[in-house]
Design a protein around this nucleic acid. Structure first.
Lengths: 177, 177
DNA sequence: TAACTATGAATGAATG
DNA sequence: CATTCATTCATAGTTA
């Protein structure tokens, strides 16, 4: 289970370059980061021996900068690596410690007031798409009761009649991986 | 970093069709909100096109009410969505706090979001280990290096003196309108 | 090739 | 609001 045994590419140099027999050959395959052994070695060194668990942005940048020497790597790769290491370390421990512990019940939610608005249910009435329910839009006129944010130019009624029947364009949101 | 295949669910009810991997098969015991494509579309519309960044309680309630027509959703879902959207937008927008001077491979890609720092490089340098490979320094103190010469003839110098003292975080701007 | 496993990546939710 | 956690999705690489 230990994540130290991954050997996608050996040697102390290039990585994932030996593609000779494989058929899938992408010019610039938008594939995910494949850490080199040096990457792993250094990252593990930091994580386990140095006790670096949650490096700051600056630290990640520095680490990334150094690791670039051993192969292509980006900021987010380092960031995610630590996130995943922490998560899976904990996850591993949890499984090993299959002890009967009372559920921590760490809920509590934010604020604990409006957040509890559980409107989940009896809402399957997919009958009529009357969007402007009140005649005013979602952002018709409201008073910023506790909007510490400063209102960001409020009062701007936003007509949100956009999704009633949008089917022509499969826009896939704003994502595009 | 842009996903797209994230939300397997559909407003119609279909659920994760790709039945290839048996690694996941959950009943409706799911706790976490899984936004539908309509949810995402509308929320993105509000966030990006309408400039809604920090909706008030009333606004969130209204948005939530509308979105309920497109699938199960609660107040907190909308709330968290905006919180996360703001945070991640900012995270990606956060510019480099320190220059990233990597030997070669700087093909003109400067700036950009911190997460977007795509290594434009496409070559495995891997020829001159500027810093101790034994990784005893990433977060330690490698001030004792004998790099007095500091030869940076070809611009391939990486002065890494990673220290845990990284201040200078004044990137607190980016107001939302 | 399908199934499996390890792990990179994304994101809803939570914490401080 | 900045960070972090938790869960899930996606996929490289391996195995049968």
């Amino acid at each position: 289970m230990e994540p130290q045994n991954r050997h996608p590419n050996e040697d102390g140099g290039s990585n994932q370059a030996a593609g000779s027999s494989a058929s899938m050959l992408h010019r610039e395959s938008r594939t995910r980061w494949i850490p080199t052994t040096d990457h792993i070695r250094i990252l593990n060194e930091l994580f386990y021996n140095k006790g670096v668990r949650s490096p700051t942005i600056e630290q990640i940048q520095r680490i990334c900068l150094q690791l670039k020497w051993y192969g292509r790597i980006e900021f987010k790769n380092v960031y995610f690596w630590f996130v995943n290491q922490r998560a899976r370390e904990k996850q591993k421990k949890k499984k090993l410690t299959s002890d009967v512990q009372v559920p921590k019940q760490r809920s509590g939610l934010v604020g604990g007031s409006i957040m509890e608005q559980r409107g989940e249910d009896h809402q399957e009435i997919k009958t009529l798409p009357l969007f402007p329910i009140h005649g005013e839009d979602i952002f018709g006129h409201m008073k910023t009761t506790s909007d510490g944010g400063g209102g960001h130019g409020d009062g701007s009624y936003i007509s949100l009649e956009l999704s009633l029947s949008c089917e022509g364009k499969a826009e896939k949101s704003f994502r595009s991986r």
